[in-house]
Design a protein around this nucleic acid. Sequence first.
DNA 1: GAAAAATCTTAATCTAGGTTAAGAACGATT
DNA 2: AATCGTTCTTAACCTAGATTAAGATTTTTC
Lengths: 193, 193
Amino acid sequence: MTPIDKLIVHFRKSITLTDDEAEIVGGCFNIVELKKKEILLFVGDHSSHMRFISEGCLRSYYMDREAKEHIIQFGIEDWWINDLYSYLTNTPSKQFVQAIEESIVLQIHKEKLNELYNTVPAIERFFRLKFEKAYVSLQERTINSMSKTAEEGYIEFRSKYRNIEQRVPQYMVASYLGITPEFLSKLRKNTTQ
Amino acid sequence: MTPIDKLIVHFRKSITLTDDEAEIVGGCFNIVELKKKEILLFVGDHSSHMRFISEGCLRSYYMDREAKEHIIQFGIEDWWINDLYSYLTNTPSKQFVQAIEESIVLQIHKEKLNELYNTVPAIERFFRLKFEKAYVSLQERTINSMSKTAEEGYIEFRSKYRNIEQRVPQYMVASYLGITPEFLSKLRKNTTQ
DNA sequence: GAAAAATCTTAATCTAGGTTAAGAACGATT
DNA sequence: AATCGTTCTTAACCTAGATTAAGATTTTTC
């Protein structure tokens, strides 16, 4: 199955596309191949694409004033990854998007996507639903970080993203949880076994 | 200007509606009047409406296991307020939505809104844009709470929501910022003057 | 307008998680 | 298989913000 085929299958999980529409849609995306550690989006760039992960594993993260990295999101096959904030507000990105493993990403330019909203209305529905889901999972994260202890957050992360936990280094999990690697290590001593 | 007129003006700030469409849209919303402290949405309810604040000030919040309140969002005239999570996932609400002042809210049932998406497509666009913005501001909050100290968060809150800060009690600001009222009080001694 | 309720402040003490530093374990590369 | 990178762990000490408790101030209610 080609990366484009995967994308169409992905779309068809939540919307209906005729074969003609699928062809149009598929033709709007470009393929990007990334080596491990390669950066797809730099801080300061305008994030003007929506990006679908066809293969591999990536992360988006920003650096605070003390140059510490904070991971916003991990993404694996069949997920979307981006600095949505930059994309939606047309401002320079404050995040990096980087491949953690060798990866294949499909991306569509914002202008092209806005045209697609008109030519293939189901795509507008897809992205409305997508932004709804993005909102939901971001809210879950926000509430967690407001009311859960680091240990509770870690336990939840493990049960929710066991597949990701096994693919990324521990210090990235710590960064995602908003704690130091040292403290995560301490937690694991109590939690594991 | 009636509450419905305000709503139409609000829609027309980001999308185009013919007068006929405006009439259809306006007819889909119900008016709810709330007294101070009255609760519009209870934990456990299904949040099956989108809610537009025509007048007043409300908050959405949840209670953690220790019965402490955490404010997710404030809302004033011309904003939308809801437990979006419950609305979007069709799960029982984990949040309360409560009037902080006497308020007027316009709400539309989810089923009716889904019909509207078909009869007045501009409305689907409006809500796609709305969810994008909701995502953006939630992400701003999440990043803030991950990387800013309480003091920095407070300073940002003041400059961004000065109008809200003046309408709600301080302990609610503390709850929104994720700190105790006592600590906010301490911060204010350093910050204010 | 007095009493009750709600909100805000101060101060002493406590704790979850951070910082620093050092070494151990694991992987890549030669 | 030795070297250099990267990742993980341990332990001593530190700090932002929580907790507890009490009183002060403001707002609401009768």
